[in-house]
Each structure stands twice: as structure tokens, then as C-alpha cells.
Design a binder for these strands. Structure first.
Lengths: 256, 256
DNA sequence: CCGGTCGGTTTCGGATCGTCGAACCACGAG
DNA sequence: CTCGTGGTTCGACGATCCGAAACCGACCGG
């Protein structure tokens, strides 16, 4: 499938429907008038799209305000459990969070984006699952850099070309050569570190995760605020634990 | 929003796109030829839809076979964590599973369907999350009956009229009057039971869950095979535990 | 009781754009 | 080299999507 121009190509009707769906997501529900306002579409057009989505049960009508329905779970769960490894990873992430008392996650790459597939930990349950599905640039995450370190130079170059290494904080890696140096170092020592490159005041460690055939499938990471996570944790305790969990996962997959 | 005729109304283009998406889900990935075959659409039509969905990042191209992408997580998570209560419920479900060593779930009603929002437990991690998003008839589930027991007679009648109380097993409730009797009993004793009405050989107990304002928002249930779950468990131990967790949830919501 | 508002719904004509079929291209197998 | 397969482009036709306007019903305030 060619990438081509992503602006006008394809079926614009489908784009309109998804534009509405994404709007409902971002506003956490909206009325017909609000949707019409935000999209600039005619009332009857919005109505027809909404009615279609409602009939298909992808949208619910909460007394005049339309919201996304739980039916999207039926489209999101299959990709999330496609690989048996993803399922086992969930358990490991929970364990990582419990054993470190910090937050842990399992990250996967999709179309050059880092996607949070599982997440656990954090004192407040409110924030514990709040980030699932979020997409972040790989080069600004410990787990993301671990994933990149598995790639060929050509592929990493393509990543650099495609994304342009956007800056998120003061310390984000934005130079191709710096990135390549970092990746070499990661390959050397076996794990990745992150000191506020994604978010000010947050440090993390990450390792690659492999399936039973040894193919890299994603990465684990543990992260916490600079004040609470010591240098010792970051450079010794966490990497060791992360590698242990990655190893376990591979073993679980092999003998099951 | 009126229900109307759900066949031809609305935007058929959007329907086609979702038909393709649901096909990709059900087949766990398909080639262009397979989609064309299954839908009866012209090759170029399928191509255009696919290209649009690909451009929007809802579909990935796995070397000729197209699959749903993880981007659907961005549409499924918001509804899943809309209510703070849903998030707290997740934790309680995990605890229920750990404390009973059986499977536990949190069920919510949407458009007369029971939807599995959280699920935990089961020795095999493979099956532990496998059912999230699944939709089942309320009258055949313990948690579902608990939900129905909160409704007005009119609303239950509407449910009966709408669904026709389909039979799933020998013991499924299929008569309006039997259902009403059962619901009265549930209101009486405070919890619902299920003896193979959903699936042969499975028994379960369920209770309603309320938010901090006392509105019913869903139900917990614990379930296991008849051989392992004793009558004592079902009628005393589990109900007590379930009610305890429901109570805790309400308290957590109030004082947070 | 009445007028105004707002959301939902229907109608209709016109133009857009989605659809189809055919042809073209790239590639790999035989 | 040729066939077959899957992906892609092209062009013409016409279905259908779009927008504007009007209608309905409910609610609210005066």
C-alpha cells in the first residue's frame, strides 16, 4: 500500500464519519449542533452520519448528547491480543508495577509511533489506565529507544526522515547522529535510559521484549519522577528487573 | 434519535467501510482479494476504502494482509473510562478474581446488551482478557439479571419486547413472567444467581453496583464451573464478597 | 396561551464523488 | 518468456451524498 497524498484521496464520506467519531472522543460527547459547528457540515449531513453510526451501534444517544459506544472495544481488543505475547506482557507489566511501586508499561511500534498497549501502577487508579492507546514518538521514550535499537540503520534513517525527530523537552534527542550513538550504546549495555527527554522531571529505563522465536515485539519500561527514582534504581535495579521480566515472557511463550 | 429502519438508511459508504473493518476483525486480517470476495464489492472500491482507512491509520498493511490497527484503542478507551466508577471497578474485579480464585467481571448495559467492560482471573492468562467488549443478553447472566432488577417494570417489558428473550441453554429464562418472578426474588435477597442459563456447566453470582449518588451503573459477578463452585460459595460466600466490593466501590467514589 | 428556541426529521434537486470495469504495472513462479 | 496474482490507476456513469429549507414536537419563559 503506497502512502501517497493523505489529504484528499479515498472516500471522503468515510473520513467525515471518522471526523465525527474523533470529535465525539475529544469532546467526550457532543450535541448535533456542536458537531455541526465544529465540522462545518450541514445539519442534515451530520444527522445522517450520526444516524448511521447510531444504527450500527457505534454511537449512543445520551439524551441529546452523542457519545462513542463501548462497541469500539470489539475493534480494539483483537489487535491488542493478536499476539499471545501481548497478553503475557500485560501480566508482566502488572508485576513490574507492583515490584517497583512505580509505573510500568508495554510499548509497541506501529507505523513509526510508539503505542502504549499496557500500563500499570501509579497510586491513583484514575491515572493508571488513562494512557492506553496513546501514541508517542519512539525516540523520546526509553522503551521507544529500546525498540529502535533493534532496527537496521536503514530503518532508523527512514524513521528519522519520516518523523524529523520532534523535540518534546530540553533534552530530547533531535540529531540523527546523537540518536545513532545512543542506540549503539543501548545495544552495548542491553537497556535504554531516559532522563526527561519525554517529559520534564521523569526518568525511566526500558528493555526490548522478544517472542519465542526471538523476534523483537515491543519493550517494557518503568518510570517515575526524578525525585523518587534513584540513579541506582535507574541504572541497576530496574534494568535487571526489566530484563528478568522480558526473559520470563519469552520462556512463558515457549513452554505453554 | 429514532430507531427506524436499520437496513438502508443513512450513509451507505460509511456502512461499507465498517463492513470491511468488521470483516478484518472477524478474520483476523484479510487480503484485498478476500475482502472483495466476502463483500461482493469491486476490487477498486475495496482498494479505495482500504486506502482511506490506511491513511487514517485505522488499518495496517502486514505485507499484503490488512489488519485492524491499535488506533482503535483511542476510540475504545474513552468510553471505557468515561465514568470514574468504571476505573475503580477494574480494581475491584481484579481483587474479586484473586480472592475467589475464580473469574470475575464487571458488566454494563448498553442498548439492552450486557457488555463485558472488565474481566479478570482464570488460570490461563490467555483467556483472562479475551472477552472484553463481548455483548451478551442480560437475562442470561447473573450480572445481567442484577442490572435488570434495578429497572422499572416498563423498561423490563421493553427489554423483553425488544430482545424476545432468546434461549442460550436448557435453563435460560425465556418467559416474561418467569423473568419478573426472578427479578423480584433478586430485589428481595440482594443478589442474582445463575445456574447454566448462559452456558452449560457454569454457575455464577452477581450484584448491582452503584455510584456515589446511588445510581445503578453496572454489576459485578464471579463465575466458575459447577464442579468447582459449591452451593455454599454461590449462595453465601460469593454474594457476601460481591456486596462488600460493591460497597467499597461506592465508598471509594465518595471519599476521593 | 403564545412565541421562541432547539433538536430531530423529512424532502428535494443538483452536483459530487463513490462505484465499477477494464487496463496497466510489478513481481514471482514455473 | 509467459502466465497469474495482487496492487494501482483511469474514466465514465449514475447512485447517493450534500446542503438548504421547512416541518414537527417538546420545552421554557413570559
Amino acid at each position: 500500500m503506497a502512502d501517497g497524498d493523505e489529504r484528499a484521496e479515498g472516500v471522503s464520506t468515510t473520513r467525515k464519519s471518522f471526523e465525527i467519531l474523533e470529535l465525539l472522543r475529544d469532546t467526550d460527547g457532543a450535541t448535533l449542533a456542536e458537531i455541526r459547528e465544529a465540522t462545518g457540515l450541514a445539519k442534515s449531513t451530520v444527522y445522517r452520519h450520526l444516524k448511521t453510526l447510531y444504527d450500527m451501534r457505534y454511537v449512543v444517544d445520551d439524551d441529546g448528547v452523542y457519545r462513542l459506544s463501548l462497541k469500539f472495544l470489539q475493534l480494539s481488543e483483537p489487535p491488542r491480543i493478536r499476539e499471545e505475547a501481548y497478553l503475557v506482557a500485560k501480566q508482566k507489566v502488572i508485576e513490574l508495577a507492583q515490584e517497583t511501586r512505580e509505573r510500568a508499561l508495554f510499548l509497541v511500534e506501529e507505523r513509526f509511533d510508539g503505542v502504549y498497549v499496557h500500563r500499570a501502577g501509579g497510586q491513583n487508579p484514575l491515572h493508571s489506565d488513562t494512557m492506553i492507546g496513546v501514541r508517542r514518538p519512539l525516540h523520546a521514550l526509553a522503551a521507544g529507544k529500546a525498540i529502535l535499537s533493534e532496527w537496521s540503520d536503514e530503518r532508523v534513517d527512514e524513521y528519522v526522515r519520516e518523523t524529523g525527530l520532534p523535540r518534546l523537552t530540553e533534552t530530547t534527542i533531535t540529531e540523527r547522529d546523537v540518536l545513532f550513538g545512543e542506540l549503539a550504546e543501548i545495544r552495548e549495555r542491553g537497556f535504554a535510559l531516559n532522563e526527561g527527554e519525554h517529559m520534564e522531571g521523569l526518568r525511566s529505563a526500558g528493555v526490548s521484549v522478544y517472542n519465542e522465536r526471538g523476534d523483537p515485539i515491543g519493550a517494557f519500561s518503568v518510570f517515575g519522577p526524578t525525585g523518587r527514582v534513584t540513579k541506582e534504581d535507574l541504572e541497576t535495579t530496574y534494568p535487571r528487573l526489566l530484563e528478568e521480566k522480558a526473559q520470563e515472557l519469552k520462556i512463558d511463550l515457549t513452554y505453554d
